[in-house]
Design a protein around this nucleic acid. Structure first.
Ligand SMILES: [Mn+2]
Ligand SMILES: [Mn+2]
Ligand SMILES: [Zn+2]
Ligand SMILES: [Zn+2]
Lengths: 145, 145
DNA sequence: ATTATATTTGCAACATAATTGCATTAAAAT
DNA sequence: ATTTTAATGCAATTATGTTGCAAATATAAT
């Protein structure tokens, strides 16, 4: 497997973003997790390595460039995950289902589960769909049973 | 059509809630709108008729009793709408699609559009589904064309 | 009608998430 | 090495939501 840092540096350059410590750190954290990561968690992990404001700006830049996508959980907290498919500055392709676990509160990107097309009342023009399923994740439903 | 205030008073009593001015006012506002109403808007309209905290508590009580349901829009803002079907303190039945207009930012409860059942990976146990469609509402797509 | 009770409200204080302006710093281009 | 441009840090501010507690009020009991 290719060196992470080198890969991230390429990613930044490709998107016209400068190679800075806070940005590399955010990419490092996000890529090392199996579920979406909340802003509060990121803030806590980064600690004083970067200012709060910087974190917000890094996340915003990444989202605009199509590097990450934002998912709001049921409490309205922002969570971020690296985009898997070919998202770009001009268009996100993250129309997969998100699963929010009631127990561990993780948000999983269910990349394999596509959102079914929808029939809406006349006049409404659907641009994007956002489906959040809530319940117990595989790991938590295991433990309960 | 029956007098609104009388109807609301019954609703409160039925749910073991006292008939108070802020509660009646919230019901009055919500029932007079064709789309979900944001907390900030409610706060603004109520002005100094009720304290911010009271508004939050009224909304919370209504939600718990199944009188209203909460929808978060794409910005994470809380929006509230009166429950149409038989929601109760023990269970909400609001699994309809919500439509968030990019132009007027209104959130419509599409009561007629049910969320299709979902096939999730093994182990995941779905409890609730929340589908938000974003785009242009009928009224706004009219104006654009 | 008066009193007792349980609930609801308002206020103050606090917590957290997010944004803005601006001076400083640092990355990349020349 | 110097210039240019982008990004960061800091301070201040706004918005959203919560908690504890005393005062007020709706309703039930007398
Ligand atoms: Mn995702
Ligand atoms: Mn609804
Ligand atoms: Zn879980
Ligand atoms: Zn609209």
């Amino acid at each position: 497997m290719e060196d992470n840092t080198a890969r991230f540096e390429k990613l930044l350059v490709k998107n016209g973003l400068k190679r800075t410590a806070p940005r590399l750190q955010v990419l490092e954290i996000l890529s090392g997790r199996d579920s979406a990561t909340s802003q509060p968690y990121l803030e806590q992990v980064m600690g004083k390595d970067a200012d709060r404001v910087t974190l917000y700006r890094v996340l915003q830049a990444f989202e605009e460039k199509g590097i990450i996508h934002k998912v709001l959980d049921q409490q309205g907290t922002a969570n971020y995950a690296i985009c898997s498919d070919g998202c770009s500055a001009h268009e996100h392709h993250d129309e997969h289902v998100h699963f929010n676990c009631d127990n561990c509160h993780k948000i999983y990107c269910l990349d394999t589960v596509k959102i079914p097309a929808l029939k809406v009342p006349a006049g409404f023009k659907v641009d994007r769909l956002n489906l959040i399923a809530t319940g117990l994740c595989a790991s938590c439903s295991d433990k309960v049973n």
